[in-house]
Design a binder for these strands. Structure first.
Lengths: 363, 363
DNA sequence: AAATCGAGATTAAACGTTTAATCAACTTTT
DNA sequence: AAAAGTTGATTAAACGTTTAATCTCGATTT
């Protein structure tokens, strides 16, 4: 039972009119009498007409498809981005073609080429670190960090850093460890920069980088956080939930109570943040807004025939950096000298976590 | 500087030949002399010709694009699937259009409709729990669980359950807690079924379900694992890394040493499994193979004009369930009575984790 | 009554590609 | 030497849509 897909001409012959009238009626353009338009819509619904994008694309030169190129699909941040972009694009009538640049500059240009062959009207790209996006003849929205040249829109990582640091300071922390991952990342440097911009003379802080420690002691080695705890550090502000998780488990395993003896914060509100125990205080990007700004900018550039064919700017009135939001959960609290090295309380069946917006992910 | 994209006719007029010859030469079909073909390819490269898919799609009725519909893009398992499918599809010359069904049956059919409008040649679908895929007139590859009717290919979750249980038994565990999440999931039931199929009379096991506990005590509540530890359970086999992570942090927070006093296992080898401390013993799906089987089956069905327009079967010789692989890391060990309730050792800067294949995810 | 206008429809071309059908010029077979 | 076959190329149609240009009436203006 082979599905026959009706075309405009089917509707046209059924009604004894021209395909042009059908096209005009369905598109609401041109001149077609209300009654005829009505009959056409009727028959269209009746036969289950659905426009063939291929024909439209060929004629108009627009595919109604955007490319989404990511440095590494396996990055745990990807789902958020993809979901937000897909949603924003769908709302604007666009589909999303994905491409994985596998953290490689060569493949990045190669996959962009494949997207172009497929005729995407524009591409949203999360930059591989240190890459510059070449001129590819169609609008490009870059999502990385405000300090990246050519960036279209991104989260305000600096402000996020400030937010988390203010949170820790207001809780009374005065010796704070900042844990970065890779010093070459614009995003991470922004976040740490924001954190440090809040520090007064009364607070002591140190910055350590995971990749440097790993270079010395091997991948997956301990970060030596117990030492910092002994030296009086009461908070550990990391630059990503993944690092926070690593820190959290290391600290817990060393018998240091979280958050009583050591507060831990992350970044990005990844899936597990709400699930671990204690649940993780972290910062959430407003991906919906970021994606909307990016997609709006793209479709605007696509719409204007002489718009920018290359990096694109947010529409007037739209931000190029969108504020992050602090999600305070269980892993941060006032530093409690009494509990500094506590016996281990048996966790009771406590109430629900704060801000638990995780949907209990099934497999 | 507006990018002009040359078409076949440009090449044709340049050489004073017909477009048909250009098409034939570039496609390697039809009859065209070797020298002319050579000159055509030469000019094509010279002007930077890249075929316009829209034209081809219109003529052939094939878009060279597959749809990938996921129940929830935000699921942490998605990156693996998307990456594998994208990769397999790209190798077969197909692009991937993504769609998010938001865990809703209505939206699922709706997004599938949008994919059809876009003219996808086939779709790979990760089923929303309990859904049946309707007849949509194009080949469909279903990726869920061997026990799902209509399933095309998936991991062998049952065998995975056996693998992890054999691992625990061979380490000497005899009181084992099995932690499921949602009893309605085919996947989870397969995994637990596999686990229990290995149990002899000499081993005691209990099964608990997170969602049931949460229904009683609220979201994010403790699972009461410390009690099980006190009752002599030495291993906790979960049905997903997310649950394992929850268990791990709860156990660590209760001052129970992992793996000395309690071994913990997960499923799926999600990103954080290698990062937490102790790193998580888990089971890895062979996504590359799964994706390859699915894509191969799809393109085969697309290729044959009278192939199945609906759920598709693996090609002859290809498996419909692909074995899982045990990734043994630090979170499992022999149950050690001496260390059952140990003092907390300060974690030294130990060497690298086993099987650490995590790429240090940046943000 | 002729010219103008406008609404409502049609014609026809165009987008870029593939492919069946055709044709012209040789080469081989009878 | 005519018939048949082969090779290398061209013609032309087709896919489904959009859109500029055109056409036909009937109504309004001169």
């Amino acid at each position: 039972m082979t599905h026959f897909r009706p075309s405009m001409s089917l509707i046209a012959t059924r009604l004894g009119v021209s395909v042009a009238s059908v096209s005009n009626a369905l598109a609401g353009k041109g001149r077609v009498s209300p009654e005829l338009a009505g009959r056409i819509r009727e028959v269209a619904a009746e036969v289950g007409y659905v426009p063939r994008m291929a024909g439209r694309a060929l004629r108009t030169g627009r595919s109604q498809v955007l490319g989404l190129v990511l440095p590494d699909i396996a990055n745990p941040l990807f789902p958020q981005i993809a979901q937000a972009i897909e949603s924003a694009a769908a709302a604007a009538g666009y589909g999303i073609l994905i491409a994985d640049s596998r953290n490689d500059v060569a493949t990045q240009t190669q996959v962009i080429g494949r997207l172009l062959e497929r005729g995407v009207d524009g591409v949203a790209i999360v930059l591989r670190r240190g890459t510059r996006v070449a001129d590819i003849g169609i609008p490009v929205a870059v999502i990385d960090s405000p300090s990246t040249p050519g960036n279209t829109v991104s989260a305000d990582h600096w402000q996020g850093g400030q937010l988390v640091m203010e949170h820790l300071l207001s809780l009374g922390h005065r010796k704070i460890l900042i844990v970065g991952n890779n010093p070459a990342s614009n995003v991470q440097n922004d976040r740490i920069g924001g954190m440090r911009s809040c520090l007064g003379a009364e607070v002591h802080s140190e910055v350590i980088w995971v990749e440097k420690i790993e270079a010395a002691h091997g991948k997956g080695c301990a970060l030596g956080l117990a030492d910092y705890a002994r030296r009086g550090f009461t908070a550990c502000a990391t630059v990503s939930d993944l690092t926070a998780l690593r820190a959290l488990t290391e600290v817990l395993g060393a018998g240091i109570a979280v958050p009583e003896a050591m507060s831990v914060t992350g970044f990005d509100d990844l899936v597990w943040s709400a699930v671990v125990r204690p649940s993780l205080t972290t910062l959430q990007m407003d991906m919906a807004t970021i994606a909307t700004v990016a997609v709006e900018a793209l479709v605007a550039a696509i719409g204007t025939d002489s718009g920018p064919r290359g990096p694109v700017r947010p529409l007037p009135g739209r931000p190029d950096r969108v504020p992050m939001r602090l999600i305070a959960r269980q892993s941060t609290a006032r530093p409690d000298a009494a509990n500094a090295q506590p016996a281990h309380p048996v966790p009771a069946r406590t109430g629900p976590n704060q801000n638990d917006s995780n949907g209990g992910f099934p497999t």
